[in-house]
Design a binder for these strands. Sequence first.
DNA 1: CGTAATGTTCACCT
DNA 2: GAGGTGAACATTAC
Length: 274
Amino acid sequence: MPELPEVETYRRFIDEVAVGQTITGLDVFDKHVLAVPEDELRAALLGRTIAGTGRLGKNCFLELDNGRLLVLHFGMTGDIGAYRDAPDAPRFTRVAWQLADSGLNLAFIDPRKFGRIRLADSVEAYQKAKKLGPDALQITPAELHQKLSRRKVLVKPLLLDQGLTAGLGNWIVDEVLFQASIHPERLGNSLSEQETTALHAAIQQVLTTAIQHEANYRHFPKEFLIHAREWDDSATPGSDAHTFCPRHAAVKIAKSYVGGRATYTCPVCQPAPA
DNA sequence: CGTAATGTTCACCT
DNA sequence: GAGGTGAACATTAC
């Protein structure tokens, strides 16, 4: 799940559950998701109070009272949760933090274990170390245009590149390109300023809409392409209406692979480059 | 049983 | 260096 809107939703959850709380315990059920030695993590966290939260792209920050950061990246299947008693720990909880005041445990849940937990000295240091570009909600139209226009690369992989802008994932890139009527195989340097402007507006619109719906894709507006993705089949068995373009009732959404990733497009809305 | 999967990274090739 | 391709990671769910 975790693209920018999910991570923002997790951040808000952590903000409500954990800010102001002191960390009194760390449970590591599977150290595979730790990118720092467990001892170091324990020493850095125990007794510290969570002063606030932050987010950059798909990375979530818990700001400690000494200025350091606990950084959560959720990989492909990560999630966040809370529980009071050990038997109630969500399935696939890999790490949990005991919060003194509420008695709750904050859970890092990750079935596939591609997520990672690390420490950082500051957002800037982390951003530099991981070579992350500006957050997808912060990048300006001019910046986006400049970055795209310098590269002779397919626009879809470009938008997925966290160094160009941070936070866009596979589903959202497809949605954004559909909303902006741009084919994913257009080259970055082939986009007009007008197209980049439309792209920027689509990024803003899709992300803010997704966040409003707490990243629950099934609640997205019906003019969103996302409903054409295969996973919606299981949500609405027997119906195939959703496999058509929201703007062209007779046009089937096409599935292909761009940059090695499953890609959905409307052949009419998004004409392939010559 | 086979297949695909929301992310990231690295090796290897042109 | 730039860009493309494919695999690997670990595991579930369909």
